[in-house]
Computed example of a mutant assay.
Amino acid sequence: MKWAVCVANDDHQASLEVRKLYRVLADRKGEALGMIRVIDESGEDYLYPGAMFETIAVAPPLERKLKRA
């Protein structure tokens, strides 16, 4: 499972919070276009510009807790 931190929410203030951790879903077509698919504040997954996020590595114990949350 991949995770990313939102570093900008230009034009997406209702959908994304800066400095918040988001779950990333695989989307090869989106990635080829420089986009990233995340589960946003609506609880749905959408494509956003990749520059709005920084992907991060999450330690296994924390990842287990995040999956349960």
Score class of each variant (00 low, 15 high):
residue 38 V to Q: 01
residue 38 V to R: 02
residue 36 I to Y: 01
residue 58 V to L: 06
residue 32 A to Y: 00
residue 67 K to W: 11
residue 57 A to N: 07
residue 31 E to T: 07
residue 31 E to W: 12
residue 6 C to I: 08
residue 58 V to Q: 08
residue 63 E to T: 12
residue 62 L to D: 13
residue 42 S to Y: 13
residue 40 D to M: 06
residue 45 D to I: 00
residue 64 R to P: 01
residue 55 T to I: 05
residue 28 R to I: 06
residue 19 R to I: 02
residue 60 P to S: 09
residue 6 C to W: 01
residue 58 V to R: 06
residue 21 L to A: 04
residue 60 P to G: 03
residue 66 L to D: 01
residue 34 G to L: 09
residue 30 G to F: 14
residue 8 A to I: 07
residue 68 R to G: 08
residue 19 R to C: 09
residue 50 G to W: 10
residue 16 L to Y: 12
residue 44 E to M: 12
residue 25 L to M: 04
residue 28 R to W: 11
residue 55 T to V: 08
residue 54 E to Q: 11
residue 14 A to G: 04
residue 8 A to P: 01
residue 23 R to H: 10
residue 25 L to P: 00
residue 60 P to Y: 02
residue 17 E to S: 11
residue 18 V to G: 10
residue 24 V to R: 06
residue 60 P to R: 02
residue 62 L to T: 15
residue 61 P to D: 02
residue 27 D to E: 06
residue 20 K to T: 08
residue 18 V to K: 15
residue 19 R to Y: 14
residue 12 H to I: 06
residue 28 R to Y: 12
residue 33 L to C: 07
residue 64 R to M: 13
residue 23 R to P: 04
residue 38 V to I: 07
residue 24 V to L: 06
residue 48 Y to I: 09
residue 53 F to V: 02
residue 60 P to Q: 04
residue 2 K to M: 09
residue 52 M to W: 00
residue 57 A to S: 10
residue 35 M to K: 13
residue 48 Y to H: 05
residue 42 S to G: 07
residue 42 S to D: 08
residue 19 R to M: 11
residue 27 D to R: 03
residue 29 K to E: 15
residue 9 N to L: 03
residue 45 D to M: 03
residue 40 D to H: 10
residue 30 G to L: 07
residue 44 E to S: 14
residue 37 R to A: 02
residue 40 D to R: 04
residue 55 T to H: 06
residue 15 S to Y: 06
residue 26 A to F: 14
residue 11 D to G: 05
residue 1 M to E: 08
residue 29 K to H: 08
residue 6 C to P: 01
residue 16 L to H: 11
residue 65 K to H: 14
residue 56 I to G: 00
residue 20 K to M: 09
residue 45 D to G: 07
residue 52 M to G: 15
residue 31 E to H: 09
